[in-house]
């Protein structure tokens, strides 16, 4: 099923090297698992989603052809099962992202997390935010006294936006290293160091390994 010829959008050299070794379904599974476990939204895997959709179409064609040609039912059902699984992965991946957008839409739209969304997701986030703002505006904010009507701030005297739900980045996640990372600093002060060896399981704060997840050195499980 692997087709590694398309350009890889995130452009990380390490990912490129790994593409030859593993199939798109594996990659999709990994993207899905990371997305599922990460508290914040991750980079949209544009090229991977595109390839997965092409392969689903191809597979659908194959299954139909098999049914038409009277190929053995068992073989057909195996292909069908493969197809179902890939479709579930793809749908669930996209769904997880939408649900994160639903949850943190305002936070996402005012930080650089915005660039991690696909074009369609950005449209969705924009619409969602408008709808949510309208709803809160007409049911709460417009009925409050002047100075307390902002959706972002508690009152006019707040200096920062203190009413925006944000993902909890210091939550703990289970993660698995893909290669040797070596001695890794867990906090800013450098008090806590951990030696991350290849293929080992860890439970760490998401915040401290965020960078490793983003560049693909560690997988969430």
């Amino acid at each position: 099923m692997a087709s590694g010829s398309e350009p890889w959008s995130s452009g990380v050299a390490e990912e490129d090297a790994l593409i030859g070794e593993t199939t798109d379904v594996e990659l999709l599974k990994r993207a899905w698992r990371n997305e599922k476990a990460a508290p914040e939204i991750l980079q949209f895997q544009a090229a991977l989603v595109l390839r997965a959709r092409e392969q689903i179409q191809l597979l659908e064609g194959t299954v139909e052809e098999f049914v038409g040609n009277g190929v053995d039912d068992l073989a057909v059902s195996l292909y069908q099962m493969d197809l179902d699984r890939t479709q579930f992965l793809l749908r669930s991946y996209l769904r997880l992202r939408l649900q994160k957008i639903e949850k943190y839409m305002i936070h996402i739209s005012k930080t650089n997390l915005w660039n991690r969304l696909s074009e369609q997701e950005q449209n969705f986030a924009k619409r969602c935010t408008d709808i949510m703002e309208k709803h809160l505006e007409q049911s709460v904010l417009s009925r409050l006294p002047f100075g307390y009507q902002s959706i972002l701030k508690q009152s006019i005297s707040s200096e920062e936006d203190d009413m925006v739900p944000e993902p909890q980045l210091d939550t703990f996640v289970f993660c698995k290293t893909r290669g040797d990372v070596g001695a890794f600093q867990l906090d800013d002060t450098g008090d806590e160091m951990v030696d991350l060896v290849a293929d080992d399981l860890y439970v760490l704060r998401y915040k401290s390994i965020k960078g490793l997840v983003e560049n693909g050195q560690i997988d969430l499980v």
Binding site: M81, D84, R85, F88, R91, L94, F124, R127
Partner: peptide, 23 residues
Amino acid sequence: AIDSYMSELDLDLTVDMIPPKDP
């Protein structure tokens, strides 16, 4: 908004809510 996202993608996301075991 969800509907328009799904039609932009031409993919129905409201099916396949649980991982499939058997076809």
